[in-house]
């Protein structure tokens, strides 16, 4: 009886600080990315007419735990003219494990410098042996007045065939 009570008492006493600690430890699971709106990234005039992709930083207000920094790069995208004024945007982050992909102008393809995933100019997988499970992540684009190119910038979970936004 005494042994049992001792065990209960000790566990109860220890459970309080541990529970508080676990609360903080798992806090990130309950946090979500804000924003998700469209951001101005470039203008049409800055995109080569021949459809060559060009990399642009995405500048936004970055909220990182306690700090809020307006006007800092939060990621980058490749923009490419498709026909005339239509623009396609790809997140530079490799869907395999998150390195940023390079554009190889000579071979007209994207190549990830980490594990050599290859992607076509539209972001599609061109080589079946590519480690990446899905094409580069396309982002929503709006071409607004004055040729401004706005992108809805999002990051997606790495390593999955499905495109799952990090929320």
């Amino acid at each position: 009886m005494a042994a049992c009570c001792a065990a209960v008492a000790a566990t109860a006493a220890a459970a309080v600080p541990v529970a508080a600690g676990l609360g903080v430890l798992t806090d990130p699971v309950r946090r979500h990315v804000g924003g998700g709106g469209f951001l101005k990234v470039a203008t049409l005039a800055a995109l080569p007419e021949d459809g060559t992709p060009r990399k642009f930083p995405v500048v936004a207000t970055r909220v990182d735990a306690w700090s809020r920094s307006p006007g800092v790069p939060v990621g980058a995208v490749y923009l490419r003219r498709v026909q005339g004024a239509r623009v396609e945007a790809l997140n530079v982050s490799c869907p395999h494990a998150g390195c940023s992909v390079d554009f190889d102008a000579d071979r007209h393809q994207f190549r990830c410098p980490c594990h050599d995933s290859l992607f076509g100019i539209d972001g599609g997988i061109t080589d079946r042996r590519s480690p990446s499970a899905r094409p580069l992540d396309a982002l929503e684009v709006q071409v607004r007045e004055g040729g401004e190119v706005w992108v809805r910038f999002q990051n997606f979970r790495a390593g999955t065939a499905q495109k799952i936004p990090i929320a």
Binding site: L25, T26, V29, V33, D64, A97, G98, R157, A158
Partner: peptide
């Protein structure tokens, strides 16, 4: 990100490790 592909628990493990949806202070 590799930790994140662990079946079932991966995404949680990853998030708890990096302390949020993105890499930063935490």
């Amino acid at each position: 990100n590799i930790a994140g592909v662990t079946p079932l628990i991966g995404p949680w493990v990853q998030r708890i490790l990096i302390g949020g949806p993105d890499y930063g202070h935490h």
